[in-house]
Computed example of a mutant assay.
Amino acid sequence: MKINQNTVLQGQRVTLVPYTSAHVPRYHEWMRSEELQRLTASEPLSLEQEYEMQRSWRDDADILFSPECTFIVLDRARWAGQERAEEDCMVGDVNLFLTDVEDPTLGEIEIMIAEPSYRGRGFGKEATLMMMSYGVRNLGITKFEAKIGQENETSICMFKKLHFKEVAVNSVFQEVTLRLDVSDQERQWLLEQTNHVEEKSYVEPELPAGTLET
Rank of each mutant, 00 (worst) to 15 (best):
T211S: 14
N195A: 04
L45N: 08
L98C: 14
M112A: 02
E43Y: 07
N95F: 09
E102D: 15
G210I: 09
K125Q: 13
V203H: 12
R119I: 11
R76N: 06
E34W: 00
A209E: 09
V169P: 00
G124E: 03
T128C: 09
L207P: 05
A114V: 01
L207C: 04
M53R: 15
K2L: 14
A85E: 06
K2A: 15
P116Q: 09
M132Y: 05
N6M: 09
T154H: 13
W79H: 14
H23M: 08
T40N: 06
N4I: 07
M1G: 13
A114L: 00
N195W: 03
L106P: 00
V182H: 03
I148A: 07
T128L: 06
L36Q: 02
T128M: 02
I109Q: 01
L180H: 08
S21W: 01
T128R: 09
S33F: 02
E213L: 06
K147M: 08
A127N: 05
Y51K: 07
G124V: 11
L9V: 11
G135Q: 08
H28P: 02
W57S: 02
T177S: 10
T194I: 01
G122Q: 04
S133Q: 14
E86K: 06
P67Y: 02
L212T: 12
L162S: 09
V91E: 08
R32Y: 00
V101M: 11
A77R: 13
Y118F: 14
K125A: 13
T7E: 13
M130E: 05
G81F: 04
K165M: 12
H163I: 11
V169A: 11
L74A: 07
V14S: 11
R119Q: 14
